[in-house]
């Protein structure tokens, strides 16, 4: 039923020119498909081109070869149907929480009542009720990341790309945010491609985990995670899967 492919990367390669004139192959022949409302986690070592890949899917960077389609259309430039959240929250510091969250629909000319109603819904959903009129620099890192998530949800994108969104947070806040994100996703299903280098986070969130190789990176292996949600990270099944994947995972870099 859910096998409609929404994100499709076909044979993506990316080469950066380097200072000494040689070419640096970051991504080589990378293909992946993400189905409608599927939560796919991409995991791989640092500096192996994960962010580059996200930027290519988001239309912010061009692939050296290969094509990306989202919702059946070729991606050539940033598009509101592709929502991205990075590790740096990229919130607009001069706008309040509400101003940030309603930015997308406001720019696209949606009426104030309608966009603010939806913005409020997601502000409530990420647990920031009461902070609508604060500026981002008054919020903690975890709260800022929540604003980023509410902002992207309010824009109602077809797909969500999350690039190590919790990478800056301390472990405790990180667990909390993972739980929240998973809860939000269960309430508001979306097609998600989530990047991390944390295996526990990957297994906690993913329907499917895609393991990346070192540079030039490509798909090493895929794992379907069919544990019931919400998952217990201390359960035997969880630890077993974790053990199995970690044998195959080389996060050193």
């Amino acid at each position: 039923m859910n096998n409609e492919v929404v994100i499709k990367c076909e044979n993506i390669s990316k080469t950066f020119p380097t200072a000494d004139g040689t070419a640096f192959d970051v991504i080589a022949d990378f293909s992946i498909e993400v189905n409608k409302n599927e939560f796919v986690v991409l995991i791989g070592p640092g500096q192996c081109g994960k962010t580059t890949l996200i930027n290519i899917i988001a239309g912010l960077e061009e692939a050296t070869s290969g094509i990306v389609t989202v919702g059946g259309e070729l991606v050539t430039e940033p598009d509101p149907k592709i929502g991205v959240v990075y590790q740096e929250t990229n919130l607009f510091p001069w706008l309040t929480v509400m101003g940030n969250v309603e930015f997308g629909p406001k720019a696209q000319g949606e009426s104030k009542a309608s966009r603010q109603e939806r913005a409020q819904k997601y502000i409530d959903l990420v647990g920031l009720t009461g902070f609508e009129n604060q500026h981002p620099n008054k919020l903690s890192g975890g709260m800022q990341q929540r604003v980023g998530i509410a902002r992207v949800y309010t824009n109602e994108p077809l797909v969500l790309l999350l690039d190590e969104p919790f990478g800056h947070l301390d472990a405790q806040t990180r667990y909390l945010m993972e739980e929240e994100l998973e809860k939000i996703w269960r309430q508001e299903r979306r097609t998600v491609l989530f990047v991390t280098n944390n295996l526990e986070e990957a297994i906690f969130l993913a329907d499917r985990i895609v393991l990346m190789t070192n540079c030039p990176s490509t798909v090493k292996q895929e794992y379907i995670i069919d544990l019931p949600r919400p998952r217990d990270i201390t359960s035997r099944e969880f630890l077993k899967i974790r053990e199995e994947i970690s044998k195959n995972l080389d996060l050193t870099s």
Binding site: A58, L60, I82, F103
Partner: peptide, 8 residues
Amino acid sequence: GAARMLGA
């Protein structure tokens, strides 16, 4: 980039 992504 964030603004363009949001549709500006």
